[in-house]
Amino acid sequence: MKRVELLINDSLYNEYMRRIEEEEREAKFCHHDFHHHLDVSRIAYILVLEHNDLKYFIKECGLTGKLAAKEVIYAAGLLHDIGKWKEYKAGVDHAVYGSRLARDILPRAFFNPNEVDIICRAIYEHRNISKDMSFLGERLHRADNLSRNCSECEYRSQCTKVKNKEISVSTLEY
């Protein structure tokens, strides 16, 4: 996955990851670090594979094959929270802002315009489930929720995701 490696080594990606780390230095829970991004990527890919949806995803999105599909899924997972630092700083929606940031990073890793659109739409959609969301947006949303073991977290009572019921038993069902 050469393009994913290029993405991970990209200077802009690393700058935004550094900003997230800086903003979360004092946070006790739900860090949006590289491990979280990689977990979301892997879980999203597993969800697609477990439901035998890879061929469907390739055809629906006009992708060139399995490797391109895997790279698109991983890129979406690795970038889904890239705008989180701006949410901390200015209160903007990190999904909306992150989708804009991703549009600058993805071409640098040789993702084509179609792939950029697919990834950025999924990033934009990942916060809230809806009936109109894209295939990848829905998988990314589920993967993001599944990546956190909130029921075991000692800081659960302080968590806004738990308070807003974005994490529930129903989100763990797939």
Rank of each mutant, 00 (worst) to 15 (best):
L6D: 14
L7R: 12
I8R: 14
I8C: 07
S11Q: 10
L12F: 08
L12C: 03
Y13C: 00
N14A: 00
N14C: 08
M17G: 06
M17P: 06
I20S: 06
I20T: 07
E21W: 01
E24M: 06
E24Q: 15
E24T: 03
R25Y: 13
E26A: 13
A27G: 02
F29K: 10
C30W: 02
H31S: 12
H31L: 15
H32G: 11
H32S: 10
H37P: 04
H37A: 15
L38F: 11
L38E: 13
L38A: 14
D39M: 13
V40Y: 05
V40R: 09
S41K: 12
I43T: 01
I43Q: 05
I43S: 04
A44F: 02
A44P: 05
Y45D: 03
Y45G: 03
L47I: 10
L47Y: 12
V48L: 11
V48P: 02
L49T: 09
E50S: 14
E50T: 12
E50M: 13
N52P: 00
D53L: 15
D53P: 00
L54D: 07
K55N: 14
I58A: 04
E60W: 03
E60R: 12
E60A: 07
C61L: 06
G62L: 01
G62A: 00
L63R: 00
G65V: 01
G65C: 02
L67R: 11
L67S: 05
A68F: 03
A69L: 09
A69H: 06
K70H: 10
V72E: 09
V72D: 10
I73W: 06
A75P: 14
A76Y: 10
A76N: 10
G77E: 06
G77R: 08
G77T: 04
L78N: 07
D81G: 08
G83F: 12
G83E: 11
K84R: 15
K84S: 08
W85I: 08
K86A: 15
K86L: 15
E87Q: 15
E87G: 14
E87H: 07
A90F: 06
G91N: 10
G91W: 02
V92Q: 11
H94G: 08
H94L: 05
V96R: 05
V96S: 04
V96K: 10
Y97C: 04
Y97F: 15
Y97D: 09
Y97G: 06
G98T: 03
S99V: 03
R100L: 12
A102I: 00
R103I: 01
R103M: 06
R103C: 01
I105L: 04
P107F: 01
R108Q: 11
A109W: 00
F110S: 08
F111Y: 10
F111E: 01
N112E: 04
P113G: 01
N114I: 01
E115H: 04
E115Q: 08
E115C: 00
V116T: 05
V116I: 10
V116K: 02
I118N: 00
I119C: 03
C120A: 01
C120T: 09
